[in-house]
Design a protein around this nucleic acid. Structure first.
Lengths: 85, 85
DNA sequence: TCCGTTTACGGGGGACGTAAAGATA
DNA sequence: TATCTTTACGTCCCCCGTAAACGGA
């Protein structure tokens, strides 16, 4: 699991589409799709249901979305934490 | 910032030495030292004071240690989050 | 047939390991 | 001088981008 995978996952969950999420993340679709698959494989969980109209979160995916957001928020707060008094 | 960097950072903070932390993480010293430096550069903060006897946390480093542990704990909890009901 | 996702394949960047150099008590 | 950290350098692996193929309404 990597922070990049978490960011991709959140973007896809919010956009409902790999292609839109890829544009938002300034990356092309294939790498994003691969990272999503790799994340699902590592977690042994299907986070999305694939449909021709896009990606919809599974129940596991919905739980994981909140978790991923917490992690990314902490990461974003890191600079403030180390800022000198 | 990467999860690997956070794991290295926590290991060094706990071991007080890059060489011991490297053994614990099954990596050699140079990569670990590089990752620590890269993390410090990215955060624009000196997390450790280097001494011949090892590494000691700075005040910023001490604050960041708690933060890094929270992040890594959430990451470790990910499998449980996605486990089906 | 069309939209979106997924694989193939070639190229580039980053991380590691060994070995040597630097720094401090 | 002895210990620990840091750089040099070569190698390998992983990720990305383009292009083509697959799959469902």
């Amino acid at each position: 699991m990597s922070l990049t995978q978490l960011r991709y996952f959140v973007a896809v969950a919010e956009e409902g589409s790999v292609s839109r999420a890829a544009r938002r993340c300034f990356v092309s679709q294939p790498p994003m799709s691969r990272q999503l698959r790799a994340l699902e494989d590592e977690l042994s969980a299907r986070l999305f249901a694939r449909t021709p109209s896009g990606m919809t979160l599974s129940s596991e995916g919905a739980r994981f979305l909140a978790h991923a957001r917490r992690i990314l928020q902490l990461v974003d707060e890191a600079p403030a934490v180390v800022r000198p008094d």
